[in-house]
Write a protein that binds this DNA or RNA. Structure first.
Lengths: 199, 199
DNA sequence: CGATAGGTTTACGCGCTGTAAACCCACCCT
DNA sequence: AGGGTGGGTTTACAGCGCGTAAACCTATCG
């Protein structure tokens, strides 16, 4: 029942629980337990329940908390400030790569947990939909400039852009195959430009 | 301790447990429990432990069982029979798409579970490495034919080919965005060909 | 006819989740 | 001073799934 509980308790405490959870997931992987998080936050387990209702509630809160504390909105604005569509693609991939390197551990846990809690799943899909819309908008810009290569529609290319730059491939390339985030950005950008843009 | 237990018990029973697990995951998603699997297989919970050691052991066995029962090797051979590298790419993507549509539910569970059991993680990585090698070999063939576009190395293009055709993007496109496996194959093929092949 | 393989039944301990209730303390208000 | 209240703590308990152990059943085979 992690549904939109209004404010409860000291925001400072809430803040600390979220940070603790975040840290723990980054360090220790997925097997994080509420006791761990509570301990790290210097708080009893029950306090966590007071603030977030249940386990999924904590993760749900993290979905908002992370982009906020990392100033994601502002960085995204910079992408849309780009002069050309081609430049937007490059900036978007770069942002995606650096941002993902900061949140991917948590994202991985969220991805897995989304199927076990309805609210959490909905929140996650919300973010995905927003991401997808942004990618589509970029392709739309490319098309408006007459630069979208033959064979693509805005929808198709937008969806491909969105899915190809999802966390899974990024994770595999950087974590398992040893690519740096910069290499990722460079090569994915090349892949996309060659496919989507007219010469 | 799901480590390579030798044969134990009736192979038929083993078979039925695996099929039951497979079915349940396909139907019900990730929250599958050993009781569920045992019940469906018409067997007691302890029998499952006798055959597979523990939960991870069942999934571990599935990693082998699925490609075997689906005749994956043979289909893969057909990919490598292709006359040209470009044709190999097309066949590989097509195979990937149809095969994934049969195993993705289970794959999703395996992906999630791989971090909680060492042996299972190793087995999963094994399969991933094999997949990656196959993709690389295809790109190598393209390069041998002098068809690899400027800017790519075999390694880089191979890794991109491998990661772009991972399950995550496939899942998102088909399950969430409503693409058919055929649309997926067609568009991913277009994406890759445009990027990797010389005109 | 006894041994063995393949399963079943019963039972137990463990860890994590989620809920509930009683209590504690600091602060504010009158 | 004294009562209320908000924010937390402590203790306790039920439930579920995993994993282990031991005793028992029953075909089959030499």
């Amino acid at each position: 029942m992690s549904s939109a509980e209004p404010f409860y308790g000291d925001p400072e405490t809430r803040h600390r629980i979220l940070r603790a959870t975040w840290e723990l997931i980054e360090e220790g992987g997925s097997g994080i337990t509420l006791v761990d998080a509570a301990d790290r936050a210097g708080v009893s387990r029950q306090t966590v329940y007071l603030h977030f209702g249940d386990r999924a509630g904590v993760l749900l809160a993290l979905v908002q908390y992370m982009p906020e504390t990392l100033g994601f909105r502002e960085q995204l604005a910079h992408v849309f400030d780009a002069p050309t569509g081609a430049e937007m693609i490059e900036r978007a991939v770069k942002l995606h790569s650096t941002y993902t390197s900061k949140i991917d551990s948590v994202a991985q846990v969220l991805e897995a947990a989304q199927y076990q809690d309805e609210d959490l799943g909905a929140a996650w899909r919300d973010r995905m939909d927003a991401t997808r819309a942004a990618h589509r908008a970029i392709i739309q810009r490319v098309a408006d400039e007459g630069q979208l290569a033959d064979g693509w529609t805005v929808d198709t290319a937008g969806d491909l852009f969105y899915t190809v730059t999802m966390n899974g491939p990024w994770r595999e390339l950087t974590r398992e195959l040893g690519w740096t985030p910069e290499q990722y950005a460079e090569n994915i950008t090349r892949l996309l430009r060659r496919s989507f843009l007219t010469e």
